[in-house]
Simulated assay, not measured.
Amino acid sequence: MICMALLAHENEQALRNQIRNIRKYNPQDVQIIFYNGGQDTNFGKKVCEDENVLYCPYSRPLKQRTSGRFFYDVMRFLEDKKIAYEYLVYLEYDIMFVNSGFREYLLSKMEGYDCLVKILRKEVDPKNASWPPARDMWKDWERWKSIFESDAFYRTSSPMSVFRHGIIKKMLGGLNKKRLEHLFDTSNIPCLGEMLYITLAKKYGGKCKIYGDNTKRFLRFRPAITRKEIKEAKSRSDVMFVHPVKDAEVRDWIFNQP
């Protein structure tokens, strides 16, 4: 089974439409787990009840670009509930599917691999770190290296990252959870999740696959996906999802496609 961890913080109608979009293009063997990262503790609960989606009880308010603990909270919730799954996928509120075939794509691309990510970079020298969040990690490295047990760390892009359950169990089993919770509470490193999970996966021997160039074109940080690009993506069977969808009109157009 594929578990899709969905992080959102506002606009319940958009959340409902996104859940239905996920189900439309992934009708088999998919479980959605919703994480409420907003200030309203009731946000999404009624939607989850109506749409038969699991609501993560470990949800808590998260600040933009400092949502690093989201994936960890979902991982441990799934373990605590003893939910069986094969893959865990990182979804955010601005990801939408445009074509079917993601399950088959995973089965093909992840044979022999533990992770599927957009990029994979190794940071080895604080003096040559060009990415600002990596520079922030190096500044706090004396504390974080006790988690990584390494002299270097990796980074990726979180949206649509996929991890096998097997590597997740190794990651969770080897963590000093009290130490990690303290670091979550006292660190303000932007994009922490884009360094934490991939580095832990590599620490425990995870083999990582990179998305193909065609997919990566529609999986980016900025600019926002346009309707013209959506139409192109939908016309190509090798493109199953797009990110980021920021415009409500574009989001509604995707949702209303037959």
Rank of each mutant, 00 (worst) to 15 (best):
E51V: 12
E104C: 02
G101T: 14
S237W: 07
C3K: 06
K45G: 02
M195G: 10
W141L: 03
V239C: 05
V89L: 14
S235I: 10
Y211E: 05
L91G: 05
P190M: 01
L219I: 13
F71Q: 05
I198M: 05
A14H: 11
D252C: 07
Q18H: 07
Y204M: 02
N26F: 07
D252S: 14
D29R: 12
C3W: 01
E149T: 04
W253R: 08
S157L: 03
F77P: 00
Y93W: 14
I83Q: 09
L7A: 10
E51G: 08
M75F: 03
A129I: 01
V98Y: 10
L183C: 06
R69Q: 13
W131E: 12
V242G: 06
S158Q: 10
N128V: 02
V53N: 11
K81N: 10
Q64C: 09
Q13I: 00
P159A: 02
G37Q: 02
K216F: 03
K63D: 04
N11S: 14
Y35C: 11
T226W: 04
Q18E: 13
L172Q: 03
D29N: 15
Q64F: 12
H165P: 00
C3I: 14
L219Q: 14
R217C: 03
N17P: 00
G44Y: 00
E142K: 11
S67M: 06
L78E: 05
I147N: 10
C56Q: 08
R16D: 11
Y58L: 15
G173T: 08
R220D: 04
R121M: 06
A129C: 12
T215N: 05
A5K: 03
D94K: 01
W141G: 09
D114L: 01
E249P: 01
V124R: 08
V239T: 10
L219W: 13
D213G: 09
V47D: 04
L116I: 11
E142A: 12
L6R: 02
P258M: 05
D247W: 00
V53I: 13
H182I: 05
P159K: 00
M1S: 13
